[in-house]
């Protein structure tokens, strides 16, 4: 993917969350956004996902500007992305299977039979075949997040977006979800993720961007950024977070 941001600005209640971000990340497969809480990572990710409208500026994905003002085009943009949230956000009244078939049928126009076949294949892939008929409440956190990933994958998105996918999970389940994401990366899927798992970001991301105070303070190939961060902010952040 190729992602460029131009003068991207967003404020919430007078507080500037994104401060005129301009950045061209170049051609890459996976990008991780790291940085302190409140630094603007999630807001930037949500803007790229078409879930939030910036106050000013533009975001371009593979040469196409995200049409923030046109709800119809914005929906078309969202349709081609697979978004996985921190809190899973599965539909609690639907079974795991129906959580996958709903977008396939209603958004992507598959027939019920085709949707079910696609959904079952996606669930099988993440060892969830036995859980197809369970409601989210009957699944563990790790299983729920894997269902959410299966839902994101099933529609064959151009880009997978993860918003702190393991922050609501205990360590064992974190590993189970990170394994899945790493596997998707090794398949060559395009990924954009916000994460607090630095080891994982280093392993899975081609490029890592450090956000603080509403700006991209620096971005570099993952190994480079973690080995030798240039900015004092990033050095301090990594020192703090890697202390334990």
């Amino acid at each position: 993917m190729r992602l460029t941001l131009t003068e991207l600005t967003k404020s919430f209640a007078g507080h500037r969350v994104l401060d005129a971000i301009t950045c061209d990340f170049g051609e890459l497969r996976s990008l991780a956004l790291i940085g302190p809480s409140g630094g603007g990572k999630s807001t930037l990710l949500r803007i790229i996902a078409g879930l939030e409208t910036p106050d000013a500026g533009a975001a371009t994905l593979d040469g196409e500007a995200v049409a923030f003002t046109d709800e119809e085009k914005l929906r078309a943009h969202r349709r081609r992305l697979g978004v996985v949230f921190q809190a899973f956000n599965l539909f609690p009244h639907l079974t795991a299977l129906a959580n996958l078939t709903l977008p396939l049928e209603k958004v992507h126009g598959l027939s019920p039979a085709a949707a079910e076949e696609t959904a079952r294949a996606a669930l099988r892939r993440f060892q969830l075949a036995d859980h197809a008929h369970k409601k989210p409440a009957q699944l563990s956190g790790g299983q729920q997040q894997r269902v959410a990933i299966a839902r994101a994958i099933a529609i064959q998105p151009r880009l997978l977006i993860f918003d702190e996918p393991t922050s609501a999970l205990d360590p064992e389940m974190t590993a189970e979800v990170l394994d899945v994401i790493a596997e998707l990366k090794s398949e060559g899927r395009d990924l954009l993720l916000v994460t607090h798992e630095m080891g994982f970001a280093r392993q899975v991301a081609d490029r890592v961007a450090f956000l603080a105070g509403g700006r991209i303070v620096e971005h570099a190939p993952a190994a480079e950024l973690f080995a030798a961060p240039r900015s004092p902010e990033c050095q301090a952040f990594l020192a703090r977070i890697l202390k334990y």
Binding site: A49, L51, R75, A76, R78, R79, L81, V83, F85, A87, N89, L90, F91, H93, L94, L102, P103, K106, V107, R151, I155
Partner: peptide, 23 residues
């Protein structure tokens, strides 16, 4: 979060009510 999820998968407003909110 449910409305956001519905938006993220690309449901229209009417579809969101029909398939996510009302049930």
């Amino acid at each position: 979060s449910q409305l956001e999820s519905a938006r993220a998968i690309g449901l229209t407003r009417a579809q969101t009510y029909r398939h996510v909110v009302f049930p």
